[in-house]
Design a protein around this nucleic acid. Structure first.
Lengths: 200, 200
DNA sequence: ACCTGAACACCGTTCAAGT
DNA sequence: ACCTGAACACCGTTCAAGT
């Protein structure tokens, strides 16, 4: 019964069933201890959630740029952030829940800023570039719903598109939007479009 | 005690304090009725949340394009979506919570698709353009944390940037990222960069 | 120092009973 | 048809009491 063990087991519970599924009583049962024992080691559920997030942030793998051209290197960072989001959705769910999004997004900002600097951009212009890239990555996270494991019965926009009959919309566009998006390809497309305008 | 009145009062509670602050018992007290009475009209808390979202979606103002050039018109839609997110964060919070994000984002997709069609893009290429724009809008929503009213004490990435001392990062870039971002200007910047690459 | 048990103030929900 | 009251199975948290 160390704080470490409590956080570890709690983290497993959250990773299995989301934040909501973590209750002090269930956790206590899992630990083979009275619910109130947890309070002696860690001060309540909120602090426990913070501790889990701290651990996830510490364990997060470093973001390393690859490639030779600035565009390639910035793009590789963006893709690495995207992978991280996909691999550890709980980290982002927790960050959002605890209003600690900055803690989680900052390493990504740092990595992008380094490559943007290396590309030769300076000052305000560079800051705009950094933020644009991060907003794009965040947008995919958001719209894909990756920061939360999507349940089985959830409707998609594709189904909604199939029923659209609007003369002001190209029929082939309608059909394309009725198909599941290849978001990886789309991400590369949007990223290159953005970087093409941003980098010198 | 009609379903309408229940939804209306519940909506007020959610708009005031977020989803978590809505409890059947508090709502019942507000309505001057026993908690169990609500169950006769509406089947439980989850269905109540769905009903609130339905009402918010119905009440959402239509997205109308402005301007003459395709770029202007697409950009105006993107800005309108952004305004909507800012004005009714609860709608997006609910959509996320209930896994009904598609219901909320679909009108925006429709509006963007219309303008992309009008701009002359077709098929897969047009679909990529539509999705890119929406992902950008979603990214701002995400990173700004606009779908949730930000609490007072929340740390920002700016504070984190002030402490950075990294030779591989341009000092002026560091300073720029230490200042609060003019997200409206940034949004326009990123949007135009993207549209410049996408539109013919 | 570490853990338990009782207790308090909350939840959502069901269901029989009332009018 | 509409509402209440009692009840059940959950919560997080505090605090005195034990070892």
């Amino acid at each position: 019964m160390s704080p470490e063990r409590i956080v570890e087991v709690a983290r497993r519970l959250v990773e299995a069933g989301g934040i909501e599924s973590l209750s002090m009583r269930k956790l206590a049962a899992e630990l083979g201890v009275a619910p109130t024992a947890i309070y002696w080691h860690i001060g309540g559920r909120d602090q426990l959630l913070h501790a889990i997030l701290d651990q996830l942030v510490t364990d997060a793998s470093a973001l390393r740029a690859r490639g030779d051209s600035p565009t390639q290197r910035v793009a590789s960072i963006a893709r690495a952030i995207r992978r991280q989001i996909r691999n550890t959705p709980v980290m982002f769910e927790l960050a959002q829940h605890l209003d600690r999004y900055p803690d989680v997004s900052f390493p990504g900002q740092l990595a992008v800023a380094r490559e943007i600097s290396a590309a030769g951009l300076r000052g305000v212009e560079a800051a705009e570039a950094v933020r644009s890239v991060l907003f794009l990555v965040g947008g995919f996270q958001m719209v894909e719903g990756n920061f939360r494991s999507r349940p089985a019965g959830a409707r998609t926009t594709q189904e909604l598109w199939r029923k659209v009959d609007d003369p002001s919309i190209d029929p082939q566009l309608r059909d394309s939007l009725s198909e599941p998006a290849d978001t990886d390809a789309l991400f590369d497309y949007a990223l290159e479009a953005l970087l093409g305008s941003i980098l010198p």
